[in-house]
Every structure is written in C-alpha cells, then in structure tokens.
Design a protein around this nucleic acid. Sequence first.
DNA 1: GGCAGTTTAGCAACGCTGTTGCGTAATAGA
DNA 2: TCTATTACGCAACAGCGTTGCTAAACTGCC
Lengths: 362, 362
Amino acid sequence: MDTPGATPNRVHLEHLRDYNESLVVALARTRAEFDRAGVAEATGLTPQAVSKVLGRLTEQGLVEVCGVRRQGVGKPASIYRLVPGSRHAVGVHVARTTLRTVLTDLAGTVLASRVVPLPPDFTPGQLLDALRSSMPPGQDLVGVGIGMVGPLDHAAGIVRGAHRLRHWHDVPLRRLAQEALALPVHLDKDVTAGVTAEAWRRGPAFRDGALIMVESGVGAGLWLGGAAYRGAHTNAGEFGHTVVQLDGPRCVCGRSGCLEVLHDTAFADGRVDDAARVLAAGIVNLLQTTDVDHIVLAGADLLRFPEVYRAATRAAIPVSHWMDVSVTLADLGADVIAAGAAMQVLDAAYGIPSKMGVRSLF
Amino acid sequence: MDTPGATPNRVHLEHLRDYNESLVVALARTRAEFDRAGVAEATGLTPQAVSKVLGRLTEQGLVEVCGVRRQGVGKPASIYRLVPGSRHAVGVHVARTTLRTVLTDLAGTVLASRVVPLPPDFTPGQLLDALRSSMPPGQDLVGVGIGMVGPLDHAAGIVRGAHRLRHWHDVPLRRLAQEALALPVHLDKDVTAGVTAEAWRRGPAFRDGALIMVESGVGAGLWLGGAAYRGAHTNAGEFGHTVVQLDGPRCVCGRSGCLEVLHDTAFADGRVDDAARVLAAGIVNLLQTTDVDHIVLAGADLLRFPEVYRAATRAAIPVSHWMDVSVTLADLGADVIAAGAAMQVLDAAYGIPSKMGVRSLF
DNA sequence: GGCAGTTTAGCAACGCTGTTGCGTAATAGA
DNA sequence: TCTATTACGCAACAGCGTTGCTAAACTGCC
C-alpha cells in the first residue's frame, strides 16, 4: 500500500498485508456498501482478519462506517463504505496542441477538468511549465498520470518519439515531471490510459477489453487478464497499422492497406458508413486475436457518429451461444485519457498488486 | 504448492510460503546450478529465509546439493540444483486422427513420446479408452495436460465443438478424463499448450511471445506478460481468421479474405514464397496488436520450409533501434503441443501463482 | 604451523501476519 | 424475561520471514 522505498528486506510479510488491504479496497470500489462477512467470504479471509484490515483502512481514512443493521435476528452488522474523497489523483492528457488536466477521487469520479493550449511543436520545457501551472492546489494527491501518444517506454518513463512532435526523441519525461512536480508520475500511451479508465470504473467484471480510439488515427488500448497490457516495448494496440487490404493504398507507416489509411480516407470523403465498416472489420480481427469480451468505442471522430459505429461493429461480430461481446461507448467523453491516467496512479497505489515485492527478477 | 482443496481458511500465510517456494523453483529451472546468496538476491528474501525454503524443497526432493563452490576466501558455498527426475507430467496432443502422448520431467525434458491412431471421427469414449492405454506406468505423476483444437473452454474444461469432429459438442472432457485417469487434468487449446512449452523452456526472459502454428490451418498461441493468454472465452489466437484482404476469397469461417484462406491457397498451389509472405504480413499485424518480442514458428506444414518462412517473417518486420523481435523455430518438433500440455501441469503445480489463494472472487 | 580475516551456515529469539477460542453486546422471537 | 442468534473484539496461538549471534570452513599472512 505504501511505496517500497528504502529498506530492501522486511518486505514479504508487509506485502501480504498490503495485498489483502488492496483486495478489500478493490472490493469496496465495486460495492456501494459492504459488511465484514461479505468481505470475508469474497477474500477467503476470516472475519477477524477482515476486522484488522478494516481497522487499518479506517485509520488511513480510506473506508468508514456508514450505518448499521441489515438482516433479522442477531446483533446488527456494521456497514462500511469507501470514502471517495480521502485520496485524489491528477491525470494529464498531452495532445498535439492541448493539455488536458483532470482531478479525480478514489472512486474514479472526475471532480475537475480543464484544458489549456500548448505552443505549436512544444518542447519538453514548455510542457513542464504548462504542467506546473495546471496542477490543482491539491492535498492528498497520490500522484500524477500522463497519457500521451507513443511510441514511448512505459517502464522506463521515456518518450521515444511522439508522433508529429519534433522535440520529443528519447525524452525522460517521467523523471523530469517527477522533479518538476515533486510527486510520483506515471507515463503511458494515451489509449492504454483510456482503457484503464474504463476498467477502473467497471470493476473486476471487466477482465478482457479493448478501447478503440478514433481521433486523428486509429488505436486500441488493451486490458487483458485484469490488467493493462502494453507488450514488450509499450507498443501494443497499434491496430490502426494492421493490414486489412494487402494490395491497398500506401500508409504513412510504410506498409500498404492499413486499417487506418482505409478508414481515414473513407471518413474524410464523408463515407462514414464505409469507414465504420472498415473499422468494424478491424475490430473483429482484434477479437479473433485477443478474444476480449468488452469493446469500448471512443475518440472525437468516432463519437461524432456513435450509433453508426456501434451498429456497424455489432453487425460485424459473429454471434454464438458461448461467445458474447459487449459493445459500448466511452462514458467519460473527452476526459477518458486524462481520467485513465489518473486511475493508473490509483491502480498502482490501491490496485491489487500482480507480483509481490519481487523486483525485475531474473 | 499443494492444491487448495478442503480447508477454506488458514490459506493466506501458507500461500506466502508456497509463493516463495515457487519463486525458487522457477529460478532453479532457469539455472543449471545456484547458491543461497544468488537466490536471496533475486527474490529479495534474506539468506536465512532462503535456507528455510531450500530445506523444505530438499525435503520434497525437488532440489539437492550438488557440490560446493570455492571462490577465493571464506567458507565455500553449497551449490544446489533442481532434481529433474523428482516429478513427472504427462502431456497429450489430441489431433484429428492421432493421439500423441509425452512424458516429461520437472525440467521440461521429453523422456518418452508415442503416437497411436484414433478411430475416424472418434467419440469421447473412444478417446478416453485410448488415453487410458497410452498412459505411461508412471510414479510421481503431477497430472495430465490435454492439448486439443478449439473451440473449448479452458476454465470449465469443456470442449465446445472441436473443428471437424462430429461427436464433440459441449463435452466435459476434463472431468471425464480426471475420472478415467484418477489424476488432475488440464485442458487447453493446442496452440496455447504449444506456446507454454516454449515459454517454460526459455524461462522468464520469454515474457511476451507468440507461437505461430501452420498445420492444416493457421493459429497462434499467445504468451503475454509472463503467462498464457487465452482471452475471455479461451478463443484468443485465432489469427488465421483475421482478414487481410477485405475483398478476398470466401473463407470457411464465413468472412472473406482471411489470412488462412490466402495462405492455404498459395501453399496448396506450391507457391510457398507467396504463402510465407502472406503469413509474414499476418505476423506483423499480430506484432502491431500485441507487441510481443518473440515469434516462434511451428507446425508440420511450415516446418517443411522453415527457412522460407523465417526469412519472409524477418524481412517483413520493420526495424527500429528500440524494438527488437526474435524469430525462431519451435525446437520440440512434433512434440511441442503434447510437451506444452505437460508443462501446463507443471506450471500449475510449480509455477509462480498469479493470484494468491483468491478464488473466482467478486 | 598458528593466527587473523572472510564468507557461509544454522540455531534461537523476535516481530508481524492471519487464525482460533472464548467472552460480550445487540437484536428478534417466544 | 428468557433464549437463540448474529456480530464483534480481546487474548493466546501458529507460521511466515527477520535479526542477532555463534560455529564452521577456507585463504592469506606472519
């Protein structure tokens, strides 16, 4: 629950504790209210252990008792709930010409949102200035998440070479922002941040999903097996540059017949139906490859014709009795990416840890 | 390390122990020899804790002392190694006309391999008979893994409707085999089992990879983020049925221009170069989507012209300074799938658990 | 050959985790 | 008012990794 920090050892038992606390917080996020017995059954812990965990979480201000009573006979049970306002995170969406900043609480609710313009072809220094002046006067800030176009390296926190931005080659943005803002910083691809927003808000039922983003280009954020999936080089989800027409027109990426080139051409010509059909074919390809059961449609271009795209996608997906796929629209609108970046910070601090205290490791 | 089984509680602390034991076994698998200090550094445990873990593992017969290392001054350190013969697993590959059975040890080495023919259009009962008589007279058997064509449901252990087999609709094969063989059984898609074999043998460096299988059809087994990835309905990796030519010829799956139809047509016509180029285009699509950095080529058809396919794949993958992809051939030959099925059993018993003692959970 | 320094191994006590046992509080129904 | 039932918590406990200390085995030096 807290940063590993200095001491190299004494970690393993603490991680067991943190793991169980995260488990309870994760459960609290999905339920408006909960009691001790319910947590005990869901986590497999004994009721006493849950009492201890809830005691610690109450002390940290993360949960609180909000009432009593429920069933018939016997002493009434205490009802707990998450305290959404106990922690906050900042999410940032760095686009080509604008900087969007969002403040969210622990439940993932967007409390404030603002946009400022960025200088044309801005430099790292200019971005850091804009970041500094956009920060909300927050207390209890867990950290800052930055969502940005790739390619970039999530693990190292380095922007490899943002598309159509000249001054962004191998820039260690995470370190720079961390120093400028004096807060923990996460750096990730915009689409991955976006899908994190959807996953965080929907809870554990959203195990395998993809966020399809159509906004000056076509990309996908992947959430596989209950976690953001980024691939070996933080480059997963570049599905706009998958070929769907081997002898198709040349794409900026060097190949021919990419989904993006076909879609954007049709879209620019006003043939939105055709564009949607091409995208839908690509989405089915994605389903064949990744077998996600949640498709979330997003992006400014797409959301101008939401029902066209949703209908085309639904129509293209084959039906079967054992394979269901939900197709929905992103419900955070233009804030998805910034909000998702914020929720990545929350996820790192209050999500269920995937590996326990083990570093890079062999 | 042992099955959760009966007792519902008292689990959490034991799981911490099992987790660390699994960690050490996983490390032991990647190194021929190791000592206490090395394990301590890799796992973050203290040397004393490693002593306790190694003591328990020695008692279980999984590791043994194999000598001492004298490096300069000081008392020489004990050198340990995994005892490959201490545990065995059986892997089975159910193909349309044959049943391949493989016996492997804890290190993943194939000790024995045999093939028996299956009756044409065989029934579940006939398969179970063949399974029973194919079982090696083993002791120390951890379990049996079955790799089979989909669609099937890995979690439930049910074959949904094996391709081109009439009697295989919603057959609970895992339960049936478990009863027939009196051993734990795992059921998985053939390609997923195959990629498990590669991942198990290569160790943790193989975090994100895909096994491309070309053998009467085109499929892919995915290994993402250090674990087999199956998707929401155990249907991931059906990348033979991704469309690469929107206006292409009709495919058996109902869509048009699937990778498989284009590839198989060219292959059947003897245009192997063309077939390899089509497959390579599909592989690059897969890379754009999943960003794996290991591509393993396999399958009887493909391995008749291994260098043609490897060269075509290498040529198609774009090069960049921060993005490297290795392209190799499956080194287990025809045994890959059966061996991988066996290693899934080993993985379940001696791999690093992903979630600790938490069941299905909310 | 004897002594100091270094590295490894292991026993014993400890802290912290979740677990178990049992006593207490609060409610419904008789 | 009494009893059964349910919820909660203190106290003792078992098991995990950690810390402190001692013994063992080796090298290098005197």
